[in-house]
Amino acid sequence: MANQGQSAAEIVFDRATKVYRGAPAPAVDELSMTVPAGEICVLLGPSGSGKTTALTMVNRLVEPTSGDIRIDGVSVAEQDATGLRRRIGYVIQQIGLFPHMTIEENVATVPQVLGWKRDRIRDRVRELLDLVGLPPREYGGRYPAQLSGGQRQRVGIARALAADPPVMLMDEPFGALDPITREHMQDEFLRLHEQVRKTTLFVSHDMDEAVKMGDRIAIFREGGHLVQYDAPERILTAPADDFVARFIGADRGLKALTLRRVGDLPLEPADATPDTAPLAATETLHTALSALMTSGTDRLPVADGDGRLVGTVTLDLIRAEAGRPAPHEGEVA
């Protein structure tokens, strides 16, 4: 059984199927996949494709009709549902903060029901609020209604992390935020994930979000069928079928460029005296291409973190890289 404080756990879906009573077809049909410990797996698909059902089978808000789900080798069905859920962080789009509790009280909920000591809860709550960028001194005593949408979602994430669960379930967590806040929260969560490394299942219907967030993407089709489970790059460069190709969009070639960095290209030698401002080597090829288009030239200087010129990126280089097949599953850039 997963322990308190364990950093991550592997999640295995083993022919997990859910047929809702009275429904003619399954919501999730024989889903089998393995999410390695510590990775972010995005469940992607149109509405009605069973993403949320698949997600909530993990914390048993939905009980599978057949098949099994195992966390670190232990079937969820064999675990007490309440205890299981306390070891799984859960974040939803509507956030669902308790409106009558202060921010601190919200975050303290699971530690409280787990019977932690007062001091330990207080320290943990402060640590988490700092982690999500809401100084506890300023925000701890406020009520959810006093926060912005983005701040509330941070509290939702802090609350889900409170008891240090090895698994996080996130159901379109940023779906209700405006585009700028959403992008910001995506960056924040990635930074946070670097630190805490929880195995995360992340439901989304947005391809760009999936490419950005996912170590792997599981693409679902109506009827709860998993059609492709792969690294984002593989999905973009080698879609399994027409459905996937259509779902990820005609601009998948451009999207794929967001996954590769300028610094990874075999750059041409740096010009001695470039006449344009250099690009950072950490920029994506997508940004580099855009910069090339804007500048009206076909070559731009590239600088490293210290501002030293390390080479020159050209349109040809990007085109060649875009045409290169993606590395195989698991070797995510």
Binding site: T56, N59, T82, R85, Y90, Q94, G96, R159
Partner: peptide, 15 residues
Amino acid sequence: VPPDVRRVGEGMGLT
């Protein structure tokens, strides 16, 4: 009580 609040409570492991 808003349904999502109750759902999150349940999903967090409140009895």
